[in-house]
Nucleic acid binder design. Structure first.
Lengths: 373, 373
DNA sequence: CACGAAATTTGCAGCGCTGTAAACTGTCTG
DNA sequence: CAGACAGTTTACAGCGCTGCAAATTTCGTG
């Protein structure tokens, strides 16, 4: 905004700025003009004196077009302000250039960050991403998989939370699909994930290396466990057992609802019930943030009294106090591979389902510092 | 998930579960069958022994179809697993049923929550939402507004952060647009927002009512201010002046980068420079979360030493410790009105730009409790 | 039973674009 | 200068669906 170009945050200027905006608005109201509507390939072709197909060729950068023609057509395009109509193109080509990314809810930071990574990866391959939220319900997931509309997207990236692999595998066979994450995935379908069990072991071992022995697990579902929770709990269990510690069901801190508030309540209730821990492996960063609050509310010091770990490395995990030791999955790598595989499927690849692992990293921060500290 | 139906979170079961999954996968691999490809309206028509148009009428719930015919067609649809092809329909109708929602970045919790509210509101009116991220850059915003593809969406909901109203008003006139939020908006275009100045006054007055007198403002841009920051700062200034307090530029805590980490650094630097405050109005919840950390790192107690307020009422603002007193905009109301107005424009409404305000609420929580406490 | 009105159903054109294959250019040989 | 050839350009038939208007059937009534 020109008016704010050399704006100094001095209070007097604010009023002036507001005035300038008003003037601008008035000018704009006068200057505004309706845009051209519905310029078609045909119109460009007529103006340039060539066939529609030639214009189409120019628009799509087909190589065998003479420089002369190309220039003339481009001039006509500019003059008319022509912009190709996607629906027409897509009907003709059968491809939409759109990938669906389905998960429970964008307000979960991990999914928001995943969505950015996927958008970037898809963009690099010429695709755009249509977000589909399932609300984590079976009905929502079914709606996505068995979408009643055809031709909306060329393929689906799907992070299931409730749906069984059996059901996923029965999805409409004509729409390529790639499963993200640790959810149940049928063998014949491509999938990309990190090794949750291994990562959970790593994070638990980190707490063990700090000398913690009463290590709890927090933030999993109170009812039916998701595949994600199961795998992370398995890794947690394995690490404990390898150190000769018998996992105690009493040290599991489930959340009535998978959300930070759920974790506040879940962890809070256990603490109030007198359960003692000196380490807490949380299912994800949101649970860890909730756990942090539950602990701090009760005057428990983190990490001194209880060391806490998260999972996902969401942006806010760097800003909590203390900030979170967490598992940082290689989101870009995950997104890139997933999109690559999906695009290969769209391109006609029909090999067996590929199940690939991507990297992750244990980020050691304040909530569970390294042993040296 | 059948296998997990009666799953108890006992460790022994985990291994068993894993085995069950493997078995399922094997079964599925065998059972999988390719779906039918490309069932067309024509195919259904032939099977049902009616014309394409009649099938079309059934699919779209046209009223004048005899029950007999309708049933026969529906049977054929079910038998063939027909699903209408969106591209075809959209080419024919000229409408896509898609609205673009453009803002800087989904990983900003406010935008994620906005996006859900908008999706819900759009869904209620039969539209779906295509997210467009601008990365908060001028180039990104221009790309959205002047999108080189036509016909992708029927209209745009746009929350600008950099673009001037002059430029917005020059957008392609054939695509309806509604501006969200406090960004610069040209008069002729519809807009929905909350009254930022008033809300900022309310939040500042809340701190004043707590007896705070050295109240800072944190989290705004260090360079050129966004319209959002400007309006909130104006309200902050007004409240101070009304209480006979001269606003001090020294009490402004800008962030080098609009992010929680940016706020940690910005606020931290000011504190280290010896600036003393007893209240902090933050531009948004993320800044407040950053401020919280900066303060706590230095042993400053919140709210005892410094009361802090946020803005947006993001989910995490309820879970920080202390949790945040914040401005809670009526997101659902905002989304509903915005979508309504956009749909009216799509429907052909051509009146003047409407600028509407929606409600907000001051949520008093721990970081700046009510005076009674 | 005939006739007009109302309720159904249909044929067809075409939305805007692209794939294919055929029709042109012009240039380069023999 | 004919013929071969590579480089350009074009005509045309749809992609799958819907709007329109006309055709057909059904129904109620005199």
């Amino acid at each position: 905004m020109t008016a704010g170009q050399d704006f100094q945050p001095m209070f007097e200027n604010l009023q002036r700025w507001n005035f300038v905006v008003k003037v601008y608005c008035a000018i704009v109201a006068v200057a505004r003009c309706g845009g051209l509507m519905g310029v078609r390939l045909q119109d460009v072709a007529e103006l340039a004196g060539v066939s529609m197909k030639t214009v189409s060729n120019v628009v799509r950068d087909y190589e065998h077009v003479s420089p002369t023609t190309r220039e003339r057509v481009q001039k006509a395009i500019a003059e008319l302000g022509y912009r190709p109509n996607m629906m027409g193109r897509r009907l003709a080509t059968g491809r939409t250039g759109l990938l669906a990314l389905a998960f429970s809810n964008v307000t979960v930071p991990y999914f928001a960050e995943l969505s950015r990574a996927v958008s970037a990866a898809a963009g690099a391959l010429g695709y755009r991403v249509l977000l589909e939220e399932t609300d984590g319900t079976l009905a929502g997931e079914r709606a996505v998989i068995a979408s009643s509309e055809a031709g909306m997207v060329d393929g689906i990236l799907f992070q299931p939370s409730m749906m069984s692999s059996v059901e996923i595998s029965r999805h409409r066979g004509d729409l390529p699909i790639v499963i993200l994450g640790e959810g149940a995935a049928p063998l014949p379908v491509d999938r990309v994930m990190i090794d949750n069990v291994l990562a959970a072991r790593a994070v638990t071992e980190h707490l063990l290396a700090l000398g913690r022995r009463r290590i709890g697990f927090a933030g999993h579902e109170a009812g039916q466990l998701s595949a994600t929770s199961i795998q992370r709990m398995m890794g947690y269990q394995q690490a404990l057992e390898e150190h000769g510690i018998r996992p105690e069901p009493r040290l599991l801190f489930p959340s009535a609802e998978i959300s930070p508030s759920g974790a506040v309540q879940g962890v809070g209730a256990m603490l109030d019930a007198g359960v003692k821990v000196d380490g807490l492996v949380c299912r994800d960063d949101l649970a860890a943030i909730g756990a942090l609050r539950a602990l701090q509310e009760r005057g428990v010091r983190v990490p001194d009294d209880v060391a806490v770990t998260g999972w996902d490395n969401i942006e806010l995990s760097r800003v909590t106090f203390p900030n979170l030791t967490t598992i940082a999955p290689d989101l870009d790598g995950l997104a890139r591979r997933a999109v690559e595989m999906l695009v290969e499927r769209i391109g006609g690849y029909t090999g067996d389902g590929r199940h690939e692992l991507v990297d992750y990293e244990l980020l050691v921060r304040e909530s569970a510092p390294s042993a040296a500290n």
